[in-house]
């Protein structure tokens, strides 16, 4: 066990002296207690000092820090790492690199990502169908982006996503809805390939989440899910 790191560097061999005595301290500044008349003089001067500072801010209009948001939309500079929206990277042909490996789904702390596979009868291999992302429960922790082995997820700074309806915050990030890529590869003709690809909008209406649509609603009010895992006491092994 790694006990050393918890023990202090300046721990004592001499146990009688308190460990606190070795901490370099600095006493908190205290203004002296004044008598009646000095207090009046000091009080008046201290109040005047404060008023001087606020007056300086009043007359100096350059100190105003307010940003007027909708008006300054054009000049708004966002840091490039701002996390406000999850996107799936698509190339110019409308493809993406997602292999539907479900790692992002597993790493998401609050089940905001749901990966739905699809397969065509001609191809045995599974592909990404819906990539369901629930903005309403996402905490923008960036774990899915870090976990993605193919770097096909990205957080962007597009932060204006408010709606009047919570169900509109459920997105399908997969814009590619053409034939499965395996089938597509069999088509030799470029013309046929282009017509087989159809990019869809990132939002395609709420995606049904099998009853677990809105958090906080007791189960009896929701349609029952047949294969729901039942909660069981966890068998822990006492180390």
């Amino acid at each position: 066990m790694n006990q050393e790191s918890n023990m202090s560097a300046n721990s004592k061999t001499d146990q009688s002296a308190s460990a606190l005595a070795q901490v370099p301290i600095e006493n908190a500044k205290r203004w002296p207690d004044l008598n009646y008349f000095n207090k009046i003089i000091y009080g008046a001067s201290s109040l005047a000092k404060g008023m001087k500072i606020t007056f300086g801010y009043l007359i100096n209009t350059k100190t105003v820090v307010t940003q007027q948001y909708p008006e300054n939309r054009e000049t708004l500079i966002l840091a490039d790492r701002v996390r406000a929206n999850l996107i799936m990277k698509h190339n110019e042909n409308g493809y993406h690199d997602c292999t539907s490996c479900h790692i992002c789904e597993g790493v998401c702390p609050n089940a905001s990502i749901h990966v739905v596979d699809r397969s065509e009868p001609t191809v045995s291999k599974k592909e990404l169908g819906y990539f369901v992302w629930r903005l309403d429960s996402c905490t923008f922790c960036n774990l899915c982006v870090m976990a993605c082995p193919f770097s096909c997820l990205e957080m962007t700074g597009q932060f204006e996503s408010s709606t009047y309806d919570q169900s509109l915050l459920v997105y399908n990030l997969n814009q590619y809805s053409g034939a499965t890529q395996n089938n597509l590869a069999k088509l030799a003709d470029d013309q046929a390939r282009t017509s087989a690809i159809k990019a869809i909008s990132p939002y395609e209406g709420p995606v049904a989440l099998e009853g677990y649509h809105l958090a906080g609603i007791p189960k009896e009010f929701l349609p029952q899910k047949s294969d729901a895992k039942t909660s069981q006491a966890r068998e822990g092994v006492n180390p």
Partner: peptide, 13 residues
Amino acid sequence: KIAAHFQCRLGPM
């Protein structure tokens, strides 16, 4: 307005 400018704000705009 005055309060806003004391506080480095713009106030109602």
